[in-house]
């Protein structure tokens, strides 16, 4: 049918499931983490069964997210090298944001914003895992000195802030760019979407298809 020929595959079923495992655990971590960060968010601990349960669950969920994020790193690493075309594209960011962009340099599978997201999470997620491990009670924190724990909680808070802000931008970009969310829910995007947002990637996959 024409509907089907109009679509191109962007993510495999495994990639989608992996992404959503990271997404669900990330949201749980952000909510339970914020609950312990500022009293204004303490009510969020109720979502996890109260303060002690939030404290108990948060690190275990963190391990699940870290391990599943490793899967995303392996799958997406190769697509995220920043190219000169990306840097050129970035110069038009103001026009792009205003929906006024014309004649943009051709973007591959990911634009530079998506690549920044990827690399910032590649840095920040291991930082969260490591610093979280150091403050994890009752299991691991007793093995570390108090000064290291103090440094770890500060790093954990800063890294979590970066991660949460990055993810808010990521979620908004997906909502703003119509036709993107189905890439992660259905696995496909329209050819028009692919040609418009990621022309170099579209060329590459149509070339592959012809071969």
């Amino acid at each position: 049918m024409s509907i089907k020929t109009n679509l191109v595959v962007r993510y495999s079923a495994n990639e989608r499931m992996n992404h959503w495992l990271v997404a669900i655990t990330f949201i749980m971590l952000a909510l339970s983490g914020l609950a312990l960060f500022h009293p204004a968010f303490y009510f969020l601990s109720n979502l996890f069964g109260g303060g002690p349960w939030s404290r108990i669950l948060h690190p275990f969920i963190g391990v699940v997210m870290f391990v599943s994020f490793l899967g995303l790193i392996v799958k997406f690493w190769g697509h995220n090298y920043i190219t000169n075309a990306d840097r050129e594209w970035q110069k038009h960011l103001g026009e792009i944001m205003a929906n006024k962009a014309r004649n943009l340099p051709e973007v591959g599978k990911y634009n530079i914003g998506q690549k920044y997201l990827f690399w910032s999470l590649v840095v920040v997620v291991p930082m969260l895992m490591l610093s979280g491990f150091i403050v994890w009670r009752p299991y691991f924190a007793p093995f570390f000195s108090i000064s290291i724990i103090r440094l770890a909680v500060l790093i954990h808070a800063l890294a979590a802030f970066i991660a949460i802000v990055a993810i808010i931008v990521h979620v908004y970009a997906a909502i703003w760019t119509k036709g993107s969310i189905r890439a992660m829910t259905r696995g496909t995007v329209t050819t028009a979407w692919a040609k418009h947002h990621h022309p170099a990637w579209y060329k590459e996959i149509s070339k592959d298809a012809k071969l």
Partner: peptide, 9 residues
């Protein structure tokens, strides 16, 4: 108390 150990830090 939720047992987070922040008081120790």
């Amino acid at each position: 108390c939720i047992g987070c150990g922040y008081c120790i830090a």
